[in-house]
Design a protein around this nucleic acid. Structure first.
Lengths: 204, 204
DNA sequence: CAGAACCTACTGGTTGGTCAGTCAGTTGTC
DNA sequence: GACAACTGACTGACCAACCAGTAGGTTCTG
């Protein structure tokens, strides 16, 4: 209940493999049930170990959550910035492509939206991190759009920051909608959205 | 834990007032902390009564949640359809207006998004209702857009259903973003979004 | 005074975290 | 290469805190 002391321990191949396995199992469960809806026991059972083993590897539930978020951050990097750090207006096509491949990674889709919804209050343990992360992604997207403006690829009278905010809002909202109603045409909605965004933002 | 029998009881002015007060208090707390993050004790304390009193008025936590959702549905009706049942493309302006007035009703903003995120799995108690509600709102918006097409107000080559899906996704996503980072320019993002949607959808 | 509107006290169940101990594998020493 | 010392990776049992719902009594009000 209170705290767990962070005992420094060396890593071993076996331990690392187990830790990774726990993370992967936990990611899927957290994306569906959130932090409050997922117990350490649930995760342990799904990973085939005892609940105490999960605590042994991660110390506290909060540390496990952060590890899962690290895992997701890494995944986002390989997805959203797959074609270099400055894709310009092509970012919309990339996003549409990501959405069309949601079925391949169902365990990680919506993780951020679900955890975000659980951490909207000041007291939310993950809020500082999620907030920082959100702002950072907005900054990155706004940056790439600003570069596109300077290259003359995007019209200069559009605000890159508002566009970036709109992108993230649309994405997390679509994730939620898709999770609750998997039958909605997420890929088609995203691709039409991307096309209209590009049509609106590119130089005439 | 199990169930509570629904004791039929007559209503009294005082009881009705208390029930309404509990609903209002609960709405705010649920919109921030979700169902799993809000205990009956929390709600009771905020309403100045004992936890047992809340159970007395609503029987179970689930019934209270449904009552809160009823309250929100009613609110949505007076907001989204304020200018009649068939506003056509003006729906975008209405939505932008609603977002610009979020500060006046902070307790109800995000309620749906937060509860949605908590009820993403099959087992989610509120999922059937939230799903139904979501589809219903999409149908209504798609309907008003289809009418706009028939009136020659909206271009016929745009899919009203995809547009409606996009609208709801954007809205719930923006709610989440605003809750986590209240400093983002929600109103401005929404008004620019609305303008670009109208520009895209109206007859040339 | 009858019923509605509470309250205090309690129950059963769940959950995060602790703790003592087991066991397999690794390392150091002669 | 054999044996002792040690370490990492667990397990099962347990605990304190929390939480939804129950039971039964008390106060308020028409």
């Amino acid at each position: 209940m209170t705290k767990a002391q962070a005992v420094t321990k060396r890593s071993s191949p076996r331990g690392d493999a187990r830790k990774k396995q726990i993370i992967e199992v936990a990611t899927g469960m957290l994306a569906r049930n959130g932090s409050r809806g997922t117990t350490l026991g649930d995760i342990a059972a799904a990973a085939g170990v005892s609940q105490a083993a999960v605590v042994y590897h991660y110390g506290t539930k909060e540390e496990l959550l952060h590890a899962v978020l690290d895992y997701r951050d890494q995944f986002e990097d390989t997805q959203l910035w797959q074609r270099g750090p400055d894709p310009g207006l092509e970012i919309f096509g990339i996003i549409a492509g990501i959405v069309s491949r949601w079925d391949d990674h169902p365990d990680i889709v919506g993780l951020l939206a679900v955890l975000l919804a659980e951490n909207v209050t000041e007291e939310g343990l993950l809020r500082p991190r999620l907030r920082r992360n959100y702002q950072l992604t907005i900054d990155r997207i706004a940056g790439t759009l600003r570069n596109a403006q300077e290259r003359g690829e995007m019209r200069p009278d559009a605000d890159p920051r508002l566009a970036a905010t709109e992108i993230l809002a649309f994405l997390s909202g679509l994730e939620l909608a898709w999770l609750v109603s998997p039958d909605i045409p997420a890929a088609e909605t995203a691709s039409r959205w991307a096309a209209s965004q590009v049509a609106q933002l590119r130089m005439p």
